[in-house]
Simulated scan of single mutants.
Amino acid sequence: MKITIEMSEAAYEVAKKVYSQQITRTEGKIEINKVTGMNEGSAQAFITIFLAMMNGEVYKRAFNNDTNKLLFESIKRDYGKEYFIKALDASQKHVDYYSTLGKGTLSGLQSIINEMRS
């Protein structure tokens, strides 16, 4: 199933609740599934990626570029420049990690990162 921008917007609101420890990761993935129809595996990945971005840490799963852009813009709006930079750093680490897998490069995500840094 393709993850739409509407699904990502709703999932972001739930992921924020996980980040602020209002709900657990498990409760979050179930809520994302109920609210958006996103499967629980993708919902879990969404939460994991969001938390990694907030902490500036590498993540291994990927999302479409529209979702990545939404996450960057939303984090900047809701959490400020410090967390926005952490999100960009985490995504750069993801691009670097992905390039070691021999499956090509994430040139679209790299372009978004470069554009948002400037």
Rank of each mutant, 00 (worst) to 15 (best):
Y79E: 15
Q92S: 13
I85W: 02
D89P: 11
K103D: 12
L101P: 01
N65Y: 10
F84V: 01
T105L: 13
A90R: 11
E82C: 04
F84R: 11
A90D: 06
S99M: 13
L71F: 11
G80D: 01
N64R: 15
I75K: 03
S91L: 04
L88H: 02
D78W: 06
R61M: 14
S91C: 09
N64S: 12
S99Q: 15
L71R: 06
Y79L: 12
A87G: 00
L70W: 02
S74G: 05
F84Y: 14
A62M: 14
N64W: 14
T100M: 05
F84L: 04
I85G: 00
Y97E: 09
G80A: 05
G104Y: 08
I75W: 05
N68R: 08
L88Y: 04
F63H: 09
S74M: 10
N68H: 13
S91P: 05
N65T: 14
H94W: 13
K81T: 05
E82L: 10
T67V: 15
K60N: 00
E73L: 12
D78T: 02
R77W: 02
K86Y: 00
D66L: 14
Y79H: 10
F63C: 05
D89S: 11
H94S: 14
N68V: 04
K81I: 06
L71V: 06
A90I: 07
T100S: 08
I85N: 04
V95W: 07
V95L: 11
A90C: 05
S99V: 06
S99H: 12
A90W: 05
D66I: 12
K81Y: 10
N64K: 15
Y98N: 09
G102N: 09
S99F: 07
E73R: 08
N65F: 10
N65Q: 11
A90F: 06
S91E: 02
V95D: 03
I85P: 00
K86F: 00
